[in-house]
Design a binder for these strands. Structure first.
Lengths: 204, 204
DNA sequence: ACCTGAACACCGTTCAAGT
DNA sequence: ACCTGAACACCGTTCAAGT
């Protein structure tokens, strides 16, 4: 599987040492951003990867592009998870599993996604990935509706939003134990059920 | 009402010019952070406030402390809203109104809260404010449970978490119209109802 | 082609000198 | 006490020189 990095050099093959350096950079960057968010500094990443700073900027025009590339890889992973979840007999079970897995992944790399948020919109590669991910989730959503488990007014786009909400909850409560996000994902799932109660928001 | 600023000089009165400068700084900072998050630079804030940079650092040991002070003011505002919402005859209506207002405020100052997130924990003033806010919300929650509208397993701490989740949703979807967050707050509210459906999360 | 140390620019923070 | 312009340190980005 040829890993496509978002910003740079999608096509032509790299020289062996360059390839090795690129991998090392991506790995070091993933770890650094997950831990420190966008505060992680390029000098640190370069050192962890065993390269000079300028080498990083040769592959990625900017630090933001580096973040984008790392996020791109994580989204690829999510796509796989969505496909795996689609094999459930009952679509609702798949949806539930995917939302749970996605939240877990999101939590593990919280710093990264926090840093990425501003940049996701407007990046071509990431938008394409997002679209593909939404397609897979959309099928799951449609099937769950047909099977009578999911509210009719829910759309594919709702799912990642709810996942991010739950992950956000988890971040807010990192003092309340590492598993607090489950509680909030649960509340969302309750809200998604076709057989659940309803209430309207204030008009204004 | 003497406004207490988090990091600095809670006690002694300030000289007239200092007081004026402090107010200008806080106002400029609120606008700047709301717009650009923590990317807003001190030089800009100083210029907008019409003071030298060093004047800011005289009042606030650090840029982070300045953010904290601005957040502190926003939380004070939220406290007022919670008290206003408590006057509803039916507690559920108050809870719903508060969650909606809180989400709106959160959205308006998204950059600020994004920047603050890391620092809220560990700051004395902010923790005290949070506790007081939770007290007020807690009463509302207890009453809504007694009146049979709210799930028995919900606690006060759940409310701000759900609000942040909804606001987060709004940020994620700023291309889908500015009112998208209502939809996700709605889903949460559905999940909170005592008469709603239930479903369990995957065991692992 | 690719790699790098050194230079540059920007921004948070501090300091010496002023009222 | 309070204010400030100038200096300092740090970090993203670029460049000139090396293989």
């Amino acid at each position: 599987l040829a890993t496509v990095t978002a910003a740079a050099t999608a096509e032509r093959a790299l020289r062996a040492d360059a390839r090795r350096n690129l991998d090392a950079i991506l790995e070091a960057a993933a770890a650094a951003f997950a831990e420190k968010g966008s505060d992680a500094c390029v000098a640190d990443i370069a050192q962890r990867a065993g390269v000079g700073q300028a080498t990083i900027f040769r592959r990625f025009k900017t630090k933001a592009d580096l973040i984008t590339a790392v996020v791109d890889r994580k989204l690829a992973r999510l796509e796989e998870e969505a496909e795996a979840a689609s094999t459930h007999k009952r679509a609702w079970d798949g949806l539930r599993e995917f939302m749970q897995t996605a939240t877990e992944l999101h939590m593990r790399d919280r710093g990264l996604f926090e840093a990425a948020q501003d940049q996701v919109i407007g990046d071509e590669h990431l938008m394409a990935r997002k679209a593909r991910l939404l397609d897979i989730v959309g099928e799951l959503v449609a099937r769950a509706k047909r099977e009578g488990d999911l509210r009719k007014d829910i759309v594919a786009e709702d799912i990642p939003v709810l996942v991010c909400g739950a992950a956000q909850s988890g971040v807010m409560l990192r003092d309340a134990g590492d598993e607090a996000w489950r509680r909030y994902l649960q509340i969302s799932l309750d809200g998604l059920r076709a057989d659940g109660g309803r209430c309207r928001l204030h008009a204004r």
